[in-house]
Simulated assay, not measured.
Amino acid sequence: MAYTHATEYGTIALHLQPTDCTGMTQTALKKKRSYGPDVLLIRLEGRSLVEKTYRNKGLPVRVMGTLLVSWEAFIYSRLMGICGIPVVTSRPDKYTLVTSYMGGENLRSTTRRPGVTYFEKLSSIIEQMHQRGVVHLDLRNRRNYGIDTSGLPYLVDFATCAYVPWPGRLRDILATIDWMGFLKIKERLNPEEITNEERRRLAKGRTMSNLWLPGRATKPIRDMITYLKKSFLGSA
Rank of each mutant, 00 (worst) to 15 (best):
R201M: 12
T176L: 08
L152C: 07
L139N: 04
F182V: 09
I221L: 13
E127F: 07
T96E: 00
A175P: 00
V50P: 01
G84R: 00
M102E: 15
R47P: 01
L137P: 00
N190C: 11
L137T: 15
P86T: 03
E187T: 06
T53S: 15
L183T: 05
T22I: 14
I177E: 09
T110D: 01
R222G: 04
A162W: 08
D93H: 06
D38W: 01
P167L: 09
A28Y: 09
G181M: 07
V116H: 15
A203Y: 10
G115W: 10
T53W: 02
Y35T: 06
T25N: 08
L41T: 03
T160L: 13
V69R: 01
R200A: 13
S90N: 11
E72L: 04
V134A: 03
Q17T: 03
P191D: 12
I42E: 01
R55S: 07
Y227D: 15
K57T: 03
F158W: 09
Y118I: 05
L40Y: 15
T160V: 14
E193G: 00
P220K: 14
Y154Q: 03
S109F: 11
R62Q: 15
Y95L: 01
P114R: 09
P86E: 02
Y118Q: 00
G103M: 11
T89N: 08
R55T: 01
P165T: 10
F158K: 07
T207H: 07
L16Y: 11
K57S: 07
K204S: 12
G23Y: 06
T27K: 13
L211M: 14
A28P: 06
L183P: 03
Y95K: 00
T117Q: 13
P18C: 09
A6L: 11
T111M: 10
C83G: 08
R132Y: 07
I85G: 02
T160K: 12
T22L: 15
A6Y: 05
E120P: 00
G65M: 00
E51L: 06
A217Y: 11
T53K: 05
M1A: 12
L183A: 08
S235I: 12
I75D: 01
V63N: 03
L44Q: 02
N144E: 02
S123T: 05
L41S: 02
G151H: 12
G215Y: 11
L40V: 10
A175M: 00
L213W: 10
K204D: 15
R206N: 14
L59N: 08
